[in-house]
């Protein structure tokens, strides 16, 4: 398998645990929005979805610093100029235009491929972003501006006076109660429990739909 060497160009914290990290883009490195790369370290590897834009001098990803994790803490601690080995982009979690309405469902950093879609010009989608608290709604304004409907779903109740317009509850609760039954193209990305629960709902309520999934963990 071909490996590329990339150098850290910069890092920006989006929350106290989530950061965006940028690398120089090796020549000949092309990807389809929604694809991921694997960082290879000591006989091991971890996947990260490229944010896009699909063209330009840099590659960027957004990463949750998993406390005690094997690899994400290294990215969290990396300094400009540090070197990493990555694979060529791969994966089939890409946007497929269709006559059915697109419904994107993310938890946490699982919003990354939808940022890539949006930066590639995809519009008119529903996007549900499930997070614990409002500060984790990364890329919210950018996505809201492109979406037909942007629905932050906060699993923890917000203290009175909180300003975001949001749904209190998990993404599957919103889908079960607010999305009219029918056929959609669902794109599910994030943790496996959400994907399992939403899939169950799709099989019950939206069974003429198509479903594409990307499980982060």
């Amino acid at each position: 398998m071909q490996l590329y060497t990339v150098h850290v160009k910069g890092r920006q914290w989006l929350t106290d645990r989530i950061f965006e990290i940028r690398f120089d883009r090796p020549s000949g490195f092309d990807f389809r929005p929604g694809q991921k790369i694997a960082f290879v370290f000591e006989q091991n590897s971890r996947d990260y979805t490229l944010l896009g834009p699909a063209h330009g001098p840099e590659l960027s990803i957004c990463v949750r610093h998993v406390a005690g994790g094997h690899f994400s803490p290294r990215l969290a601690a990396a300094a400009p100029g540090d070197v990493f080995q990555v694979t060529a982009p791969s994966g089939f979690f890409t946007f497929k235009p269709s006559p059915r309405p697109a419904v994107f469902v993310a938890t946490g950093t699982g919003v990354a491929p939808f940022v890539a879609f949006e930066r590639a010009g995809v519009r008119d989608f529903h996007l549900l972003h499930g997070v614990r608290t409002a500060e984790n709604l990364i890329y919210g304004p950018e996505l809201a501006a492109a979406a037909r409907a942007y629905v932050p779903c906060l699993s923890q109740p917000v203290a009175a006076g909180g300003s975001t317009v949001h749904f209190t509850g998990r993404v599957d609760a919103w889908l079960a109660t607010r999305l009219p039954s029918g056929g959609y193209d669902f794109y599910l990305c994030g943790n496996g429990d959400m994907i399992r629960d939403v899939m169950r709902l799709i099989d019950e309520r939206f069974h003429s739909s198509h479903v594409f999934t990307e499980t982060f963990f």
Binding site: K96, I195, R200, I202, D203, V211, T213, F216
Partner: peptide, 21 residues
């Protein structure tokens, strides 16, 4: 990543083109 997804427990699966069958 876990090997069991529990998304096929109702007897359905997804084609890579997205259909639930």
């Amino acid at each position: 990543m876990k090997i069991y997804t529990q998304t096929g427990d109702q007897g359905k699966t997804s084609l890579i083109s997205g259909e639930r069958v």
